[in-house]
Amino acid sequence: MQQQLLMPSIDLYNTPLTIGEQSFMSRLMLGTGKYKTLKEAIDSINASESAIVTVAIRRAQNAKNLGKSNLIDCLNWQKIWLLPNTAGCKTAEEAIRVAILGREMAKKLGQINNNFVKLEVIPDPKYLLPDPIGTLKAAEYLVQKKFTVLPYINADPMLAKQLENIGCATVMPLASPIGSGQGLQNISNIKIIIENSNIPVIIDAGIGTASEASKAMELGASAVLLNTAVAKASSPNLMAEAMKSSVISGRIAYLAGRMTKTIQAQPSSPTDSISFI
């Protein structure tokens, strides 16, 4: 009888991602904007098996006020953790108000202990680059109010460390501008942030395809958050599947440890101490 090879479970290598007091098995987070239809969004989120889904509170509130269906009403929030975000806020004060609305929304969905907020303060309408001063100001206030703050930032190692020091649960440096699909354009700074950080580093914005998500994880990032790469793919649910697999493979490759690069070639089949009959 042929012996069956037992492959070790991926879960043996993929330890939970811990943010604040919550732990998650998936290291892929998905956004909810830009999909053509609600069904397409739901199918993609399900295909990704993301444990955390981020929702723009302003957009969700506007849809609710207009009596329109939105993802808040269509997803199973017993299985998915809501990450409210302050997208659309131009000032620290705006972001704080929207964060409070987001916490109330999470509680209405039954997530009583959900104090998460993805903090975005973006006054720049052209490049959508986050305001470091406004972000730091809002983060400091929200941390004091017992929020679990996940701030979206430029790949700035000094700002990342300041946010960690005031009590943020993660830092979320951009790979490249939001929705650009340019991939990892700030690798050197991201490496410094990861090296210096004692909290999870989540790569957010600019990822365009699965290989880029895998590369982010190979650098040692704790997780990847993306939206446009899936929503604007020709087949969003297939791209969601690809992203799920790439984040897992990138994580395992990081844990495995990359071989050292060399200038000269090294034979994979050395001839020393080999006798030929």
Rank of each mutant, 00 (worst) to 15 (best):
Q2N: 13
L5I: 15
M7R: 15
M7S: 15
P8Y: 14
P16N: 11
L17W: 01
E21D: 13
Q22L: 13
F24P: 08
S26V: 07
L28G: 10
M29Y: 04
M29S: 04
L30C: 04
L30P: 02
L30F: 01
G31T: 00
T32V: 00
L38A: 06
L38I: 10
K39A: 15
K39V: 14
E40T: 11
E40A: 15
I42W: 12
D43R: 14
N46T: 11
I52N: 03
A56R: 08
R59D: 15
A60Q: 12
A63H: 09
K68I: 12
D73N: 10
W77M: 03
K79C: 07
L83Q: 05
P84N: 07
P84D: 06
P84Q: 06
T86K: 05
T86A: 06
A87C: 05
A92L: 09
A92P: 09
A92I: 08
E93I: 12
E93N: 15
E94I: 05
I96E: 02
G102F: 04
G102S: 08
G110T: 10
I112M: 15
I112R: 13
N113Y: 05
F116S: 09
F116I: 05
P123Y: 03
P123F: 05
D124C: 07
L129P: 10
I133D: 12
I133K: 12
G134E: 05
A139I: 03
K145P: 06
K145S: 14
K146M: 09
K146A: 12
F147A: 05
Y152K: 02
A155M: 01
P157R: 03
P157N: 02
L159N: 04
L163M: 06
E164R: 07
E164K: 10
G167R: 06
T170Y: 02
P177E: 07
G179E: 00
L184T: 04
L184Y: 07
Q185K: 13
Q185N: 13
N186C: 09
S188R: 07
I192A: 09
I193N: 01
I193S: 04
S197A: 11
S197T: 02
P200F: 03
I203E: 01
I203D: 01
D204I: 04
A205E: 04
G206M: 04
T209P: 07
K215N: 12
L225V: 13
V230G: 04
K232P: 03
A233T: 01
P236N: 01
L238Q: 14
M239P: 08
E241T: 13
S246W: 02
R251P: 00
L255H: 05
G257Q: 09
M259K: 15
M259D: 14
S275W: 11
